[in-house]
Write a protein that binds this DNA or RNA. Structure first.
Lengths: 290, 290
DNA sequence: ACTGATCTGTGATAAATATTTCACAATTGT
DNA sequence: ACAATTGTGAAATATTTATCACAGATCAGT
């Protein structure tokens, strides 16, 4: 046990580079629900990680143990030690960092934001927003501000794959009035607006509303003035220990929305995705992953 | 084994009265450092509790298990569940929605991603990354791919405020070689690369590495090939119930990083922020329509 | 203090499982 | 096409578990 004070989890993590693919797959599986999985029989672990028995035997030795039983014994020792420590509270997310470390403070705040945001969300409103966004008969405009335009673009990138007739508008640009000319009754605007609320965005929203468009607003807990003309308003907690606001909660909601919308018209979407993947493959834009 | 609802520890406690002296002695030893001792071999447990082997076998059956292995399996299951529990107390995040609703399923997955990502992150590496990014003497290049470029831009927007000499590079664009010409030894590249990994990004990273630049890599749990030339590699869990991967965990890490970097050179940053705010006000960039 | 019933440990053994290791084929990446 | 990796199936080995008979210990009640 020359490996000093580091946990086996650390050790495995450090060795990750020296492991081959199957071994790494196994290692990640061990870490997945650590340490329980490593305490069962070797064969069970192999099946769980979807690798062969010899692979497990090989990796354990590569990690420096004489055999699987010795590895298990080490795990048990660690578990025994860990339980004894009264700091078993899970307020440390990054276990290797002190609880006052920014990693833990920030994560704690974000989780709290998520809890509060989700706790007061109206599932009906959420579903309604998804329905609107999924409806390919409506042109979809996605509007972001100075900071939020990255979120808007994230949504745009995905919607572009899922459905036709999507436009990304930046409210800080002076070209958005041109886009608005094309908007007709029943079209949908997804608008991002958090403090400090932007006048451009409000103006855009009002004009869109006048033209009979539906508005889905993604805002913060104090709600942008846009909410007065919004059909659906989803408000997020965004306060974190930082000089900035957090977009993480909104990102979560956004991705949930993307997942939901995609499910809603999967049949129509599937072909689009496959076509796109083919095109990417053909142009070799990406490297095939395995 | 109908006692599904309660923990094995509880169960043992309850049975304590029905046990004989040696069995009780054994049971207490099991509870002593629970559950580690029960996960080793039967003989070890017997010796540990200072009872005989048959006593262990007898007690296990008295507890209602078919044999010692089954008892161990139950312990492992409980351990597995327990590790997850600190967060799982929020069975339903969106209280108004059924637990099967996508809002709850998705959030559950993201929280799990966060837990796993933070759990295996190396705070030293994280701090090192922050130090590199905070160092105004090094030019900072931020590189994103097709999807990740929104994250890259999010980082860029903030870094632009916090420090000078920041450049946003899109690896999918064919203009990035021009940026690379300006990179000199000691400069820092923050590179985003998740599956499916992009060849352009890898090429860019390799060239940057050759020029002596430091590379901070934000990638997924399988790690982009860029990690071979990276100074710091931060890997994130990204799997969610969706056709796409989740960027939420990475966003969290990113914002934590921004917060940390900003704190590191706050004195230098403060003036920049104030100056910028003034400029926004003066140019009325956001008030055109008031 | 005695008795009888119950509990417990010993040592041995058979049965069951788990581990380790082969050689070789299939697969993968370069 | 070559080298490295990985899986397969099997067999040998090692370990663990379950159980037995029996002897000693314990204890309650007389």
């Amino acid at each position: 046990m020359a490996e000093a004070a580091q946990t086996i989890s650390d050790h495995i993590h450090k060795m990750l580079d020296d492991l081959t693919r199957a071994e790494r797959q196994l290692a990640l599986s061990v870490l997945e629900n650590y340490p329980a999985s490593g305490l069962g029989p070797l064969t069970a672990l192999a099946k769980d990680a979807d690798v062969s028995v010899p692979t497990v035997a090989r990796m354990v030795q590569k990690l420096g143990y004489k055999g699987y039983p010795e590895f298990q014994a080490a795990l048990r020792e660690e578990l025994k030690a860990k339980v004894k420590t009264p700091i078993a509270k899970h307020d440390t997310w990054a276990e290797a960092a002190p609880s006052g470390h920014i990693l833990n403070r920030f994560t704690e705040a974000v989780i709290e934001n998520i809890r509060l945001t989700l706790g007061q969300i109206d599932p009906t409103a959420f579903d309604q927003a998804c329905d609107l966004i999924a409806d390919a008969d409506r042109h979809l405009f996605i509007v972001g501000g100075r900071i939020t335009h990255t979120l808007a673009e994230y949504l745009f990138l995905h919607m572009q794959v899922i459905r036709p007739h999507v436009t990304h508008v930046q409210s800080t640009s002076n070209t958005w009035p041109h886009y608005l000319l094309n908007a007709k009754e029943g079209d949908v605007f997804v608008i991002f607006d958090v403090r400090r609320y932007e006048n451009n965005t409000l103006k855009l929203a009002e004009l869109a509303h006048e033209r009979g468009a539906k508005i889905v607003l993604m805002t913060d807990q104090w709600r942008s003035p846009v909410h007065q003309v919004a059909t659906v308003c989803l408000s997020n907690r965004i306060v974190v220990p930082s000089a900035w606001d957090s977009a993480t909660t909104m990102m979560l909601l956004l991705e949930t929305m993307i997942s939901s919308v995609q499910t809603l018209n999967w049949t129509q979407t599937k072909a689009r995705i496959e076509g796109l993947e083919d095109m990417f493959d053909q142009t070799k834009l990406f490297r095939k992953f395995t």
